[in-house]
Amino acid sequence: MRSLTIRRAAARDADRLTSLVQGSGAYRGAYASMVSGYRVTAEYVTRHRVFTAVDAADRALGFYSLVLEPPELDLMFVADGARGSGVGRLLVEHMLDQAQEAGLGEVRVVSHPPAERFYRRLGAERVGTVAPSPPKVTWERPELRFVLA
């Protein structure tokens, strides 16, 4: 795996995080409506625990957003070119460390359906299904939980 650093995102990162979301190959085809027009704003980055994985040239390889109240992994994206390299696993491990440091007992994940196996491999348990919320989301999504020790 290439060299990477996970750091707290800054407001100035909002546009590149938006590019990761909108350029995600995982959201093409039937899932495109979910990210169409979606923006990660500077205000969002400032308000939540948003962390980004960057390489030695400071290129964003992925990011996540942990919302503390209620505890939820709100966003998690890995750049298409970095998928399969362990970036996602490192981001989830970092998120779980952040959640534990914040005193959380669990973290909810409403998963993109194709990502459910990824989260389950990392220890999340499926606890239900979230109904569609048209017009952007017209499919059911797995609801998962990471329980922290």
Score class of each variant (00 low, 15 high):
residue 121 R to Q: 14
residue 103 G to L: 07
residue 74 D to P: 02
residue 51 F to A: 09
residue 100 Q to S: 15
residue 6 I to N: 03
residue 129 T to L: 14
residue 132 P to Y: 11
residue 12 R to W: 05
residue 102 A to H: 08
residue 109 V to W: 00
residue 72 E to M: 13
residue 88 G to W: 00
residue 46 T to D: 15
residue 85 S to H: 08
residue 3 S to H: 10
residue 32 A to V: 11
residue 117 R to S: 09
residue 91 L to I: 09
residue 66 L to C: 08
residue 31 Y to I: 03
residue 110 V to S: 07
residue 87 V to L: 00
residue 30 A to D: 10
residue 79 A to P: 05
residue 138 T to Y: 04
residue 35 V to L: 07
residue 9 A to H: 05
residue 13 D to E: 00
residue 39 R to V: 15
residue 137 V to H: 05
residue 111 S to D: 02
residue 133 S to E: 15
residue 14 A to I: 04
residue 53 A to H: 05
residue 131 A to D: 14
residue 91 L to N: 04
residue 90 L to A: 14
residue 91 L to D: 01
residue 113 P to A: 01
residue 102 A to R: 05
residue 41 T to F: 13
residue 26 A to E: 15
residue 97 D to G: 14
residue 37 G to H: 11
residue 119 Y to T: 03
residue 143 E to R: 11
residue 80 D to C: 02
residue 64 Y to R: 03
residue 7 R to G: 06
residue 116 E to G: 06
residue 142 P to T: 06
residue 79 A to G: 10
residue 2 R to V: 13
residue 18 T to A: 04
residue 115 A to H: 04
residue 35 V to C: 11
residue 138 T to N: 12
residue 19 S to A: 14
residue 85 S to M: 03
residue 29 G to P: 03
residue 105 G to N: 05
residue 101 E to G: 12
residue 68 L to E: 14
residue 59 R to N: 13
residue 139 W to E: 11
residue 57 A to R: 15
residue 141 R to P: 01
residue 132 P to W: 06
residue 121 R to G: 09
residue 40 V to F: 14
